[in-house]
Simulated scan of single mutants.
Amino acid sequence: MLFRKSFHFTLVLIGCQVLASSRGSRLEESCMKVGINKHPHDLHKYLICFQDDNGRYWADDYSCSPGHIFSEKEHTCILSDEMGDHLKYQIEGSCNEKMISCIDFSHYILCDYQDGAWVEVSNGSCKSLGMECCGGLESTCTNDTLLCQNFTCTRNGFFPDPDDCDVFYECKNGISAVGKCPWDQVYSPCDMTCTPRTSPGDCKTLRCEDSTSFPAFLTYPDCFEYYIVCLNAETYFVFKCDDGFVFDGKKCIPS
């Protein structure tokens, strides 16, 4: 997940990305640079490209959320105009067995349980309700500044916030929900829970702006299965290796 403070990545990105990733045998031929690149033949996907010591590329592809396409200009997934304004928000499975859920970072869906199944009743923009965004663990429209921080999911699971050791994100089916630990605790990505803050050193952060060149690859302190790819000083993805793997500075390898 691309995370940029200045604009929304709707995979869910920006809240909404479908986390289907596969390594294609010839995808690397479309890599023009390390970092994010357009997919060679699918507007609904994008590539994250890496490079080995010999200068050879390899790539993983990721899918934008339903109703979104990748914009090479904005380097993010954006709402597609391929569908009408009403239909683009009617996404199958968005009810998630809840009365209200976030479709993406800006839009909600209202659902009701009828005849043994959850069905959509209505949907719309949070801004039309006077709310700033859709997010949080409750997955609803809100004006909470913290909850309106947009995070790009790269897979299902829990992720630390590189800028704030109190904050974490839960990603499920491409939708991110933000959580915050109590004042006397910090989020531990290794334990995937909040742990007591016993010293200043317990608060560990990563800063893309400290890098001297881009893209930069940073491993999370003391928890090597997490790493971030900095595209510039403000734009980054947070990744997690598969279980049993750690990031060696360039790729995930068996631990």
Rank of each mutant, 00 (worst) to 15 (best):
F3I: 07
R4C: 13
R4N: 11
F7W: 12
L11F: 14
V12I: 13
L13D: 09
L13W: 12
G15Y: 09
V18Y: 09
S22Y: 15
S22A: 07
G24N: 01
E28D: 06
E29M: 09
M32A: 09
K33I: 01
N37A: 09
K38Y: 03
K38G: 04
K38C: 07
H41K: 13
H44P: 01
H44C: 10
Y46E: 00
Y46F: 12
L47E: 05
F50V: 04
D52Q: 15
D52L: 05
D52N: 13
D53H: 03
N54M: 11
G55C: 13
D61Y: 14
D61L: 08
Y62C: 07
S65F: 09
P66Y: 04
F70R: 00
S71E: 09
T76P: 01
T76W: 01
C77I: 05
D81V: 12
M83C: 03
G84Q: 13
H86F: 14
L87Y: 12
L87N: 11
Y89K: 05
Y89M: 02
Q90P: 00
I91F: 00
K98T: 08
M99R: 15
S101I: 06
I103E: 08
I103T: 00
F105R: 08
S106F: 04
H107A: 02
Y108S: 00
L110Y: 01
D112A: 06
Y113M: 08
D115G: 01
G116S: 01
G116P: 02
A117M: 08
V119H: 07
V121E: 10
S122V: 02
G124W: 04
C126P: 05
M131G: 05
E132P: 02
C134S: 00
E138L: 13
L146Y: 01
C148W: 06
Q149M: 06
N156I: 02
D166P: 04
Y169M: 11
K172Q: 14
N173G: 07
G174E: 09
I175K: 09
I175N: 07
S176I: 05
P182G: 05
D184F: 07
Q185L: 02
S188D: 02
S188A: 03
M192P: 01
P196F: 07
S199N: 14
G201K: 05
D202G: 04
T205V: 15
T205M: 15
T205Q: 11
R207Q: 13
D210R: 00
S213A: 11
A216I: 02
F217E: 00
L218Q: 10
C223S: 04
Y226S: 02
L231A: 04
N232S: 15
N232G: 10
Y236T: 02
Y236Q: 10
F237Y: 14
F237G: 03
V238M: 07
F239M: 14
C241P: 03
D242G: 14
D242W: 08
F245N: 15
F245V: 08
V246F: 09
V246C: 07
V246M: 14
F247A: 04
G249R: 01
C252G: 12
S255R: 15
